[in-house]
Simulated scan of single mutants.
Amino acid sequence: MVSCLLALGSNLGERAGTLAAAVAELGATTGIELVAVSDTAVTKPVGGPEGQPDFLNLVVRINTSLEPLDLLAACQSIEAEHHRTREVRWGPRTLDIDVITYGQSQSTDPVLTLPHPRAAIRGFVLVPWAWMEPDAQLNGQRVSELAAAAADTPEIRRARAGA
């Protein structure tokens, strides 16, 4: 089994319910064991078109026996079940699941770059990760320090229950 970090986000529809369902579906996927789930963060959209609704974001720690591209396919299948479309880069979406880390693997494959190429600068990934794993590191740097330096971090807050 390989320890991996996944980041989930939603800014369309019933965001909290979508994230909860996606976490449950990940945990029910053959070859995936759910280890930990972060608190949910309310975040402003980063990049993409103006005027998007706020996101709810969280991260999960999993153990998996799936190969990296099979894990990506499982994530994309769950996204599709929640009517994810890919029309505008960084546009609004019902569900986004990104593979942030896959063990210590490093890859420049354009289909799945590992670790995720923008994870180290995205507060919406780093903040919930630091909440869940205060001593976590990404590429040899403390996630909490990366989070403190991320441009989008100042506006991130914990979601209230049922948000």
Rank of each mutant, 00 (worst) to 15 (best):
R158G: 03
N11I: 07
V59T: 05
Q76D: 09
A7L: 00
V23M: 09
N139Q: 15
A16M: 13
G31W: 10
W90V: 10
D98W: 01
E79H: 00
A136Y: 04
E155T: 11
T40H: 11
T153W: 04
A130G: 09
S65H: 10
S38E: 08
R15N: 09
I121V: 15
T40Y: 15
W90A: 10
I32F: 04
P128C: 08
D96P: 05
A22N: 09
A24F: 05
L112M: 05
G123L: 01
Q137V: 13
I78L: 05
P115T: 07
A41T: 06
A7I: 00
R86Y: 02
A22Q: 12
A21H: 01
A136M: 06
Y102Q: 12
L138M: 11
R122S: 12
C75M: 05
Q106T: 14
N63V: 02
L12N: 04
L95H: 03
D98A: 08
L95K: 06
R160W: 10
V37L: 11
V88H: 00
V23L: 10
I100E: 08
S10A: 15
G27P: 02
R86V: 05
V23N: 04
D70V: 07
L146T: 09
H82R: 13
D39Q: 13
R61S: 12
L6Y: 01
L95D: 08
A36M: 04
D70I: 03
V59S: 05
R61W: 11
T29L: 08
D109K: 00
A74F: 06
A36C: 02
Q76T: 08
W131V: 06
L66S: 08
C75I: 02
R89F: 05
D98F: 03
V111Y: 00
E67V: 10
A28Y: 03
V127G: 03
I156A: 11
L72D: 08
Y102H: 14
R160L: 13
Q76V: 06
H83F: 13
A120E: 12
N57Q: 12
E50S: 11
E155I: 04
V60K: 13
V127C: 01
D109T: 07
E67K: 07
V60N: 07
P128T: 09
L6W: 01
